[in-house]
């Protein structure tokens, strides 16, 4: 399988606080990789480094074999990286359809067009994506009034518009009910397989992690303390102690 994301010896500190310390891993096509750890473990920092929102102090990040250190998020996106956020970030003054259209417009480099009318551009493609994430009935509602769970799905559709090779999902199921979580993750799983892409996601719900992830990375205080298939990680003593330990006791 092709290596989609390769992270080598990543370091990042904010002032005195070492947020990410020597993190290395790689992600292959067709894989769902979970990044877990307690609050403040460095998960979001890691995401922001890969996404290009932050610059690493040391180490390198390769996406599809290309080094992306110091690239801006918008350039990282052009390499085929989609992203969803922990706190959803959509365009509240637009409908679901328009949100997805925006992404398609950007993908097709039409954002500077002054003469065409959006209402006629990429509607079918956008509807297909909206249908795929299962909110076709909400397509013409404004994102400003949408339920939180639906917004997560909008973000997914927006991220998929780019036909990404890598999907970065920060807490994709936060704020959802249990049934909805399962639904979204099942959906993600099927998309990963049909589209031959890799997913890196963070998650608090351990059931989701161990049900769906092929591989799990555990971070604590910026350090990677375990990596491997879910069942292996589950058995890791250190993980049990500092992370799961609190749950089991």
């Amino acid at each position: 399988m092709a290596i989609i994301l390769k992270v080598q010896n990543l370091h990042k500190a904010f002032g005195g606080l070492r947020a990410v310390v020597d993190v290395s891993f790689q992600l292959e096509a067709g894989q769902l990789m979970a990044m877990i750890g307690p609050n403040g473990a460095g998960k979001s920092t890691c995401f922001n480094l890969i996404n290009g929102q932050l610059n690493p102090d040391q180490g390198s990040i390769f996406i599809m074999g290309q080094k992306v250190n110091g690239e801006k998020p918008r350039d990282v996106w052009k390499l085929g990286v989609g992203r969803t956020f922990q706190i959803t970030s959509t365009f509240p003054s637009m409908t679901v359809l328009e949100n997805v259209q925006m992404s398609l417009l950007s993908h097709n480099r039409r954002t500077k067009s002054l003469l065409t009318n959006v209402s006629r551009l990429y509607v079918a493609e956008a509807m297909a994506l909206i249908d795929l994430v299962g909110i076709a009935d909400q397509a013409h509602r404004s994102c400003g009034v949408l339920a939180y769970g639906d917004l997560k799905r909008v973000e997914l559709a927006v991220a998929l518009a780019n036909q990404p090779k890598l999907l970065l999902m920060d807490e994709p199921t936060a704020g959802m009910g249990p049934a909805e979580r399962q639904g979204l993750m099942k959906l993600t799983e099927s998309i990963v397989h049909t589209r031959e892409m890799g997913v890196l996601f963070t998650e608090h719900d351990m059931k989701v992690v161990f049900d769906y992830a092929n591989r799990v990375i555990v971070l604590n205080r910026g350090k990677m303390i375990a990596a491997g298939p879910p069942d292996e990680v589950q058995k890791n003593n250190e993980v049990k102690k500092i992370y799961l330990g609190t749950a089991s006791s």
Partner: peptide, 11 residues
């Protein structure tokens, strides 16, 4: 609406 989102869709 969202500078975070536009940045992450390549705009």
């Amino acid at each position: 609406d969202s500078s975070l989102r536009v940045d992450s869709i390549g705009i």
